[in-house]
Design a protein around this nucleic acid. Structure first.
Lengths: 204, 204
DNA sequence: GGCAGAAGCGGGGTAAAGTCCGCTTACGAA
DNA sequence: TTCGTAAGCGGACTTTACCCCGCTTCTGCC
């Protein structure tokens, strides 16, 4: 019996619970847009949504859990593009190109959801007991690396390294106090850097 | 006028302040060794050291600041090895070898100070306004990369990527609930992975 | 429909981070 | 030595995440 990857409510959710979850997510999104992440407190969310504090915690586990849920939600269609959309992001292109394209797409995605991304990814990560983590990003990168001929390589470690190299520089930037200043240039530089890193790592 | 890299008390510290700082650090180290990081609260540290809570915050800024200070302290002699010790860690070896050796050394260092490292690096990083960060690790890696012929490359981004690829996988492991289980094997695997990554990135 | 018991709910309670501000102390200059 | 003042100190206060547990509401089953 393994722990779930990230915190989540037990499987078969009762109808009222599901309704509340949706309501809470919608309210959270509103509050985030209106007043920024630091104003999104558990008490405020409970009050504004007309539910009890206990309920909020039951649904999301921790404050970070709210941002993770928000990001998951936004990630859903991004994920579809990734798994079944047109190349180079979707299947059909050579895996190295898909890897490069994936990095750029993920960066733009995180950038577009910067508030949630910052709070979700900087918050203390829930780590599954007894194993290495497997976020969506991690899984996808590992899958693509498996399709590339890399010679002798420890794919587990390489995946962890590349996942970190993809997310962390952007997160660092997003945490800077003036993160909105030159957002596009920075994103471009990071996307180019990712492309270059992939090329260096994967060339024969 | 730039912000300091990490939070620190204003420059010329009064004698009583310096004494208190040392006393607090020593007490913190004791508490960490005796009861683990989660028991090291600001209140507890203040009480045990016989000082006021305000003083603790004045010295370290935030809770994370204490772990950062602890780690900095431990890092001092490691740093000397790095800057002036024998090759391949110190100067004299080819920069690629130094880079590889540095990664392994840093991993062992973080592993030896895992409690402080985890708390310091997972805690919300204080990010300097208006620029990319420059931790000791970051600076050293950037310096070494500057000595290597990499062809066209954005060294700023590459440095951020490699710094992340070095620290994050280990931190993830350190955050796992059973982090002490197979510590040495994991460290070895990560060190090998780092060596391999450096080789891939830096080969002509 | 009625029932049992699990799932969900609410909101008061606790602990710990971080702030504030009036009092005290070190220390350079006269 | 004395004095002015900036630095330091302490601890009450505020805020907020997170826990607890008695009560309520679903929902599958007869």
């Amino acid at each position: 019996m393994t722990e779930p990857l990230v915190w989540q409510a037990p499987q078969p959710e009762r109808a009222d619970a599901a309704r509340n979850r949706q309501h809470l997510l919608a309210t959270a999104r509103e509050m985030l847009a209106e007043a920024g992440p630091e104003r999104l407190t558990m008490d405020a969310l409970a009050e504004r949504s007309g539910l009890g504090k206990g309920t909020v915690f039951r649904r999301f586990g921790t404050r970070t859990g709210i941002f993770v849920a928000l990001l998951d939600d936004a990630e859903r269609d991004f994920q579809e593009q990734m798994l079944g959309g047109p190349p180079p992001l979707g299947p059909g292109a050579p895996p190295i190109d898909r890897l490069a394209a994936y990095g750029e797409a993920r960066m733009r995605f995180l950038m577009d959801n910067r508030d949630a991304a910052r709070a979700a990814l900087l918050g203390r990560l829930p780590v599954p007991a007894g194993g290495l983590p497997a976020s969506l990003s991690h899984t996808h990168i590992r899958m693509l690396l498996g399709l590339i001929d890399l010679g002798p390589a420890d794919l587990t470690v390489l995946t962890a390294q590349l996942t970190a190299a993809l997310d962390v520089p952007l997160l660092r930037y997003l945490s800077a106090t003036d993160a909105d200043h030159a957002a596009d240039q920075v994103t471009d530089a990071l996307a180019n850097g990712w492309r270059d890193l992939v090329r260096r790592v994967c060339r024969p």
